[in-house]
């Protein structure tokens, strides 16, 4: 059986809020290492990969592999019934028909119990090759969100150009063009504003802004975001969570004919 207790319901609420417009039904794969999810959007252009390691939970117990097939719209409806500060416990049997959620208020003596009906989901699972990325950019997640939003008003696509010490986000649209450059920046006083660009070779790739704007819904999960790029491979956008857990998005590039 599965029993997983989260100190703060807000983590799961934010994860589901961040991915539910990209994927609708998905399996939460539970085993003794934690709870994982991998799902592609309908157009097979973007992929979500979540890992909540067992250390994220306290306690965490999962004796055998259990796949919880959940409709994310339903999941969000139930998670909205939890306060952000509530303690959240997920429970399921070994061959479950439902997943149970218990929300406990740490301040009041309130316990809320919900069940969500599970579904059989036949999901394609993709193997992601280990990649040494040519460029890794770490920047404030809010800054990345603002750039994607601003440029999406002008164009459908953005070119991300990484070179030594600088990364440039460039778009060309019907009404005009836009470009935002960021340089390596490190501050002891405001480390949350740091920008770090690690580069083994220059990279320039173009991506759909519609998907990037969607990924940025995860910004509330982490103050910083990591963009990993190599020429002619999907972009990796990673939000790191506590205890080595993560929410990752992959996006296939746009390439000239």
């Amino acid at each position: 059986m599965l029993e997983a207790r989260l100190e703060q319901a807000s983590i799961l609420k934010k994860v589901v809020d961040a991915i539910k417009d990209l994927v609708q039904d998905c399996n939460f794969d539970c085993n003794d290492s934690g709870i994982a999810l991998q799902a592609m959007d309908n157009s097979h252009v973007a992929l979500v990969s979540m890992m909540l390691k067992s250390d994220t939970f306290s306690p965490f117990r999962c004796d055998r592999n259990i796949a919880l097939g959940i409709n994310l719209n339903s999941f969000q409806k139930v998670l909205r019934c939890a306060q952000n500060e509530d303690i959240l416990t997920l429970k399921a049997d070994d061959s479950p028909d439902v997943v149970s959620l218990v929300f406990e208020s740490s301040e009041q003596d309130r316990i809320s119990e919900y069940d969500i009906k599970l579904m059989d989901i036949d999901q394609e699972h993709l193997g992601i090759p280990d990649t040494e990325y040519a460029a890794t950019i770490t920047m404030p997640s809010g800054e990345f969100q603002r750039i994607c939003r601003d440029l999406s008003a002008l164009s459908e696509s953005v070119a991300i150009e990484a070179e030594k010490n600088a990364v440039k986000f460039v778009c060309n649209g019907d009404i005009g063009n836009g470009a935002i450059s960021l340089r390596n920046h490190s501050s002891v006083e405001k480390p949350e504003q740091n920008v770090n660009i690690e580069l083994s070779e220059p990279v320039a790739l173009t991506f759909s802004l519609k998907y990037l704007v969607n990924f940025c819904k995860a910004s509330g999960l982490s103050g910083s975001v990591k963009l990993c790029l190599s020429n002619e491979v999907p972009l990796l956008v990673e939000y790191e969570l506590a205890s080595n857990s993560y929410l990752r998005f992959y996006l296939a590039p746009k390439i000239g004919d």
Binding site: H44, L47, I128, P234, K254, I255
Partner: peptide, 14 residues
């Protein structure tokens, strides 16, 4: 013009 690629071109079925 640019063509949107699919993930299946890069990732393998497992």
């Amino acid at each position: 013009s640019l063509k949107q690629q699919k993930l299946g071109q890069y990732f393998y079925q497992s």
